[in-house]
Design a protein around this nucleic acid. Sequence first.
DNA 1: TTCCTTCATTGATGGCCGTCAATGGATCTG
DNA 2: CAGATCCATTGACGGCCATCAATGAAGGAA
Lengths: 114, 114
Amino acid sequence: MTDLPVINCCTPLAGSSLGAERAVELESVMKALADRQRLRIVNMLLRAEGEPVCVCEFEPFLGLSQGTVSHHLKVLAAAGLVERETRGTRSYFALVPGALDAVRDVFATAPSRC
Amino acid sequence: MTDLPVINCCTPLAGSSLGAERAVELESVMKALADRQRLRIVNMLLRAEGEPVCVCEFEPFLGLSQGTVSHHLKVLAAAGLVERETRGTRSYFALVPGALDAVRDVFATAPSRC
DNA sequence: TTCCTTCATTGATGGCCGTCAATGGATCTG
DNA sequence: CAGATCCATTGACGGCCATCAATGAAGGAA
């Protein structure tokens, strides 16, 4: 699985024509966010305000098996939305700064202010 | 298929804990946007600046069969993102005003300004 | 009415996705 | 070393989804 580039800022959906290639890029990021469990993970990370969160904290919160939680985190990482950091035997995840802002800007209807 | 309520504004992903029920709501809207063809449809509608667009215009642009285009428009309508308007034998679609803004606000990392 | 156009719906098909149990690897502890 | 803990990966299963061809429904034109 190859990591995806973080979405370019300043290229909102409005404005210019969305080419087929770029539609595929955008689609993969949106797919990563189109899952209830991953939305809750992102929510937890947002509330952590940049502080890395241990994998073992997601599991009881989501009520999923450990393997499934690991799967969801991998999907978010592949989309460029979160980063992994290993400390000893544990893994911590944090939001990639600006990644969500880029997603938000895609849906700006007014001209981008970048 | 029951229509979904338009996403509430002023309830961004940051801030409070994302309950399982609301995660499901958000998921369905994100799923509607997590498809390359539907992203191109939204892009066309954004560039139309509120003007309704005939179904027959999407088909050559997307390069899909007529039935598939109709399917995608139905998904977007069920998510509350677009509205259908019938004129004679033709159907026109337009963005629901504010729907995309609501999606954008969900991913606001700074406190909402509503 | 009869024909044509436009669109929605149905049924079928292939592929992708979320989930779990089980396994394996890596690290820490005793 | 042995055992325990944490996590990633694998394989399997069930379900959902995008797509098409075919059909149906509704409106306009002759």
